[in-house]
Each structure stands twice: as structure tokens, then as C-alpha cells.
Design a protein around this nucleic acid. Structure first.
Lengths: 145, 145
DNA sequence: AGTTAACAGGACAGTTTCAGTCCTGATTGG
DNA sequence: CCAATCAGGACTGAAACTGTCCTGTTAACT
């Protein structure tokens, strides 16, 4: 359904939360703040740390903090960190394996403009944009932060 | 991986093929032309017919023909016909059911700008654009963001 | 009429992918 | 030395998708 994974959604929640925390926060702490089970939150944070979107500190009193300001993190980066490269069709996945029916397939390569358009759209939306988006009626920022 | 279903890919192939045929063509005929098994092609065509993207004629000497010129069919329409409404996150799916943790979820509603951007991008690409895209001999999507 | 070609619609199993959890190891502070 | 915390990978159960098949309906041709 052209939908992204739920983990990406969690990643956004965690990043926004980290932004509000203004410092180092632990995985259990983030879990409690955003209402998502701790093991899952930990998994997401590890993936984000791998891409440098968050910076981890190990050991006691360690935790995570934002690697960059929210405004400089794009939605595209988060999706890449969680779901891998943005390629709508397997034909253009960077896997290197060629489509088995490449010689007949009349679509090979034609999704490129679509992929490009999607990437461009996602790169033009920052996390700050999402954080500032209007919240549903009845939900106040103070309640979630 | 933010990828669309393979059937959508087939749909594009079938539509481009129908455009080349310039008339009524049967499901088995399209299958042979694009190298995709007949039952699958039939399934895709039925879905496209349901959305009016192709027009079916029943009975002997029946078949399918394009409902509109390629240039007026957008990628978004095909995706909707095959995969359903374009909504990246379940939070904003038109299901009406509210997120079970809506009161805590700090992300509710924030994907809207992303969804809008994606829809806009997909609505601005017509099938004719894809049909005209160059078919690269080696087809290498070098690097993705 | 009868037969044949073709679409319509739904039901079905096999496969793959994903979400979520858990375990073991490494690092740092008290 | 002990506790807290991240790192990395393996594993399981559930869900979605793919691809196929079956039955019914429509229309042309003989």
C-alpha cells in the first residue's frame, strides 16, 4: 500500500521526543515518554545511531542525544535509516541483480522519474516541519512532551 | 522499504502495452506481449477496469482498451487502483479508526504534510512520462540517498 | 440454439516480509 | 567490583502479498 514501516513512525516520535528533552535521555526513558515498548524503541534508536541521526553514549548514565538539529534532519534520511534506500520497485533497487526478464520487461528503468520525484519530496520535509504540524484537536504539546 | 507492490509494476506494463496496441487486446494477448503469466495479468486488468483506467468488453472478441490517453493517467491513479489509497502511515488511513494510543502518540497527524507531498509528486507524473523514459541498456541506479 | 471466447468476482495456499522480543557482549560511572 | 546502558545479532509469530484457480456471465459466430 505504499506505506512505510511502523518503525519509521516510531523513529519520528523518538527523535521529536529527544528534541524536547534537550539532552541525553535513555532508551527506557524515551520508551516511557512516547508509550512504545522499550525493546522496540531500543531497536529503532540503534538504527538511527547507525546513520548518525542520534549519538549514543555507552555505560552508566549514558543514553542518546540528537546528532543534528531537527530542522536539518529530513524525512528521507529517517526512512533510509529504518527502511533502507528509497526505491519503489525492485527493478531499480541497488541490489545489482538484474531483472530476470529485463529483455522483455517494458517498464525497466521507467520508474526512475517516480523514484526521483519521491526522494525529492521527502528530502524537502524536515523533522521540524513535522514537529510543528498541527496536532489533532484536544492534544496539547505539553501532554506529550 | 517504501516500495509499491509488484502488481503495480505489471499494471504499468499492461497499460503501456495497451497504448501501443491501439485497440482492443485480450488478457492472454497482453500476457504474451509483456511476459507475465496470464492469470496475474487478468487480475491486474480487472483491478484497473474497476477504476475505469481500462474499459473491458465481454464476450468473444472482447478484451481491454485504454479508458483514457496515457498522458492523462497519473501514476497516483494506478497505485490507488492496485494498492489502495496512498497513506504512508496507518494513523492517517481513512479508516476512521483512531490510533489506540492517540492521547500519547506525539506523531498523530504529523505525517499529513508528507502524505500530501507524496501524492502531489505522484499526481504530477503521467504514464506517458514513464513510457517515454529512456530505457538504459545497463540500467544502473548508482546511488540512492 | 449451441458452442466458444473472453471478462467478473471471489476464494485459496505458498511465500515472503515485518514487528517485536530476547540474549550475549562491550563500555562507562560509582 | 557492581550496576546501568548501548551494540549486535538471532529468533518467533503474525501479517501482507503473490500467484493461481474456480465458477458464473456476456457476446460473437456457426
Amino acid at each position: 500500500m505504499l506505506k512505510l514501516s511502523r518503525l519509521t513512525d516510531y523513529a519520528v516520535a523518538a527523535l521529536v521526543r529527544l528534541s524536547a528533552a534537550e539532552g541525553v535521555e535513555t532508551s527506557p526513558g524515551i520508551s516511557a515518554a512516547i508509550g512504545i515498548p522499550e525493546p522496540t524503541v531500543a531497536k529503532v534508536l540503534k538504527m538511527l545511531a547507525g546513520q548518525g541521526l542520534v549519538i549514543s553514549t555507552r555505560g552508566a548514565r549514558g543514553g542518546y542525544r540528537l546528532g543534528r538539529p531537527l530542522a536539518s534532519i529530513t524525512v528521507a534520511e529517517i526512512i533510509v535509516a529504518i527502511d533502507g534506500p528509497i526505491a519503489l520497485t525492485s527493478c531499480v533497487e541497488g541490489s545489482g541483480g538484474t531483472c530476470e526478464s529485463l529483455t522483455r520487461c517494458p517498464v525497466a528503468g521507467r520508474w526512475d522519474p517516480v523514484n526521483t520525484a519521491i526522494r525529492s519530496a521527502l528530502q524537502n520535509i524536515s523533522l521540524a516541519d513535522m514537529a510543528h504540524a498541527a496536532l489533532p484537536p484536544g492534544l496539547r504539546m505539553s501532554e506529550v512532551a
